[in-house]
Amino acid sequence: MQEEIFVSGRHIPKIDPYLEIWHWEISLYLFLGGLAAGILFFTALFYLLKKENEMPATVKYASIIAPIALVIGLAALFFDLTHKLYVWRLYTTIRITSPMSWGAWVLLIITPLSMLWVFSYYRETYPKLESKLQVFKKLKFLNSFEKYIIKNRKYIAIALIPLSIILGVYTGILLSAFNARPLWNNAILGPLFLTSGLSTGAAAILLFSKNHFERKLISKIDLGLIILELALIIHMFMGMAAGSQVQLEAMQILISGQYTVMFFVFVIILGLIVPAILELTEVIGFKVPVIVPALLVLMGGLIFRIVMINAGQLTRFLY
C-alpha cells in the first residue's frame, strides 16, 4: 500500500485539499470576456466587409452588449481580487510573460473602444432614448466628438479585430499557461476558448437579429464554430488521454467524476449538440425560434467556464 500524508503544517484554507482560489467570478469574467470578444470581432469584421446595412444587429445593435459585458466582467475580476486596493498595480507594468497582465491591458484598451463604437451608433440606434435624455443637446461638445468618432470608425474596427482575437485567446491561455493544473495545461485551451467566445458572440448577435439574411448567416457561422469547438474538445481529450498520469486523472474528473454530468449534459449536449441541430434545421430552411439555440449556446458557454475553473482547481501535480 502507498500512503502519502501531511505530517503537519498544511490544510491551508483555500489551498487544501484542493484549490479554491478562483471562484464563479473568474468563470463569469472569462465568459463575458469571450462573449465580448466574439461580438466585437463580428461587429468589426462585418463593418469592414461593409455589411452595415444587411447586418444591422451585428454591426450596430448587439455591440451594446460588449462594453456592458466587459465592465461586468472586470467588476467580477475585481471582486475576486483579495488585495483590491492595489489593483492599480496592474497598470504600472507590462509583464509579457503574464497572460493576466496582457489581458488587463487589452481590456483597458478594448473596453473604451467598444464604448466608442456603441457611442458612434447611439443616435442612430436609440433615437427614442436620445429624445428623452437629450444628451447631445445638453453637452454640445459631444456633437463634434461624435463626428470625429464616426469618421474614424474604420480605424476602430481595424483595431478591434486583433484586439478581440487576443481577448478571446487570452481567456483560454490564462488557464493553459498553468502547468500546475493538469486539466488546464494544454495548448488547445486558447483556440478552444476563442472558438467558444466567438460562438457565444454569434449567439448573442442572433438574439438581436430580426433580419432573415443576417440570422441565417450568423447561424451558419455559429454552426461552424460549434462543430469546430466539438472537434477541439475531442482533441483536448485525446491529448489528455495520451498524457501523463495527472492528465489522465484530470480527464477523469470530466468524463467520470464530479463534473461529468455538468459537462456532458449542460456543455456538450445542451450547450453544443442541441443548438447545433437546431441551427442546422434553421440553415436548411425550417423555422426555429432562434432564441432557443442562442440561449443554449450562451448557457453552455458559461457552464463550460464554470466547469473548467472548478474542475481545474481539483487537479494538482503529483509529486
Binding site: I15, D16, L19, I21, W22, L77, D80, L81, T82, H83, K84, Y86, V87, R89, L90, S98, M100, L174, A177, F178, N179, A180, R181, Q313, R316, F317, Y319
Partner: peptide
C-alpha cells in the same frame, strides 16, 4: 504590489 489575483497560486505545482 500584489493584487491578490491568485494567478501565482494556480501556477505553482507545489502549492
Amino acid at each position: 504590489e500584489c493584487i491578490g489575483c491568485g494567478a501565482c497560486i494556480e501556477s505553482c505545482p507545489y502549492d
